[in-house]
């Protein structure tokens, strides 16, 4: 019962957030220089007839709520209009490129988990030791290492000097290795620090001391207590990490010339292709909000304290 109530509350909050986001997204049209007609016309000649046609098509003479509702209801069916520069439905442009970004993000997630959790646990268990200090320092460096700078160093080292990986473009999975690493290292540093903090906290619990006293092996303690009990705090930053991939992908795709959604955003922003920008903003907002919602729900379900109505 408690769970249902909490999940329902989170769900309502997520829907409200999505509404606010869609309003802000729609407002982009008004923000764009030259006004909405100009933004929707693109490079077509602005004869009075075409302007009138555009005004009629996009209900620009109607009051704001009507216009907004018109746009939103179309967007909900996946119709984001037509790109101004390419004259192609926005939705088909997105679906052409979504694979690149999803592949990149999935690979990056694998790297983040494979690096962040072991590093954080190792640091947390050997607290204050040399390993802990090195890991903490390295994670701090990667926390301030912008993805585009990492991308550049990786490109130079592994693609140009060592020639292990291709320099630019798409193709087989080898094209994604360096971009995925560039995208993953920042989030991995965040994950390392959270895992370390969680492991420290768990490590100080009496049941760990007791497990040690009982003579359980270090590995046994790790496996059955530390890993499991550190999972909860780590889960809470999953939303943050996914948001990190979204923004990171913009820079990394640009650095490696990958034709994904991130480079599409840069391209459409510089060309003021508002319908494409709107679709991308709404999409990324949906991803972040849904990810946070899932994390919240998972947290409620996993955490026995909340499940039983305490805390």
């Amino acid at each position: 019962m408690v769970v249902v109530k909490l999940v329902a509350r989170r769900l309502i909050a997520a829907v409200l957030l999505l509404l606010v986001l869609s309003l802000l997204t729609y407002a982009l049209l008004a923000l764009s220089p030259g006004g909405p007609e100009r933004a929707l016309l693109g490079d077509r000649p602005a004869t009075p007839e075409t302007i009138a046609a555009i005004r009629a098509q996009f209900l620009l003479d109607e009051p704001f709520p009507v216009r907004y509702w018109h746009w939103l209801s179309q967007a909900l069916t996946g119709d984001f209009g037509t790109s101004i520069t390419v004259r192609q439905p926005v939705i088909s442009m997105l679906s052409e490129r979504v694979n690149v970004t999803v592949t990149l993000a999935l690979l990056a997630a694998v790297v983040t988990l494979a690096v962040g959790i072991p590093a954080g646990l190792a640091a947390g268990i050997r607290r204050g030791g040399r390993l802990d200090r090195s890991i903490t320092l390295v994670s701090l460096v990667f926390l301030s290492f912008p993805p585009f700078a990492i991308a550049l160093v990786l490109l130079y080292g592994f693609a140009i000097q060592l020639r292990w990986f291709p320099v630019y473009g798409t193709g087989d999975l080898s094209h994604y290795v360096l971009p995925a690493i560039a995208l993953a290292l920042g989030p991995a540093a965040v994950l390392t620090r959270h895992t370390r903090a969680a492991a420290l906290q768990v490590g100080e619990q009496d049941y760990i001391t007791f497990a040690r006293a009982r003579g359980l092996s270090r590995f046994g303690i790790w496996e059955s207590y530390l890993l499991r009990n550190s999972a909860l705090p780590v889960l809470t930053i999953a939303g943050l990490i996914i948001a990190g991939y979204l923004t990171g992908a913009v820079f990394v795709e640009q650095a490696f010339s990958l034709p994904g959604l991130g480079s599409l955003l840069v391209q459409s922003v510089t060309q003021k292709d508002i319908p494409v920008v709107q679709a991308l903003v709404l999409l990324s907002g949906v991803v972040v909000i849904v990810a946070n919602l899932l994390v919240d729900v998972a947290y409620v379900i996993v955490n026995p304290q909340i499940r039983q109505g305490r805390a």
Binding site: L28, L31, P33, L246, V250, L265, V269, T270
Partner: peptide
Amino acid sequence: FALPGLLVLIVVVGVAG
């Protein structure tokens, strides 16, 4: 906090020219 800040920055600065 729910919005990816850097994306907002790119879009706002980019669209505003």
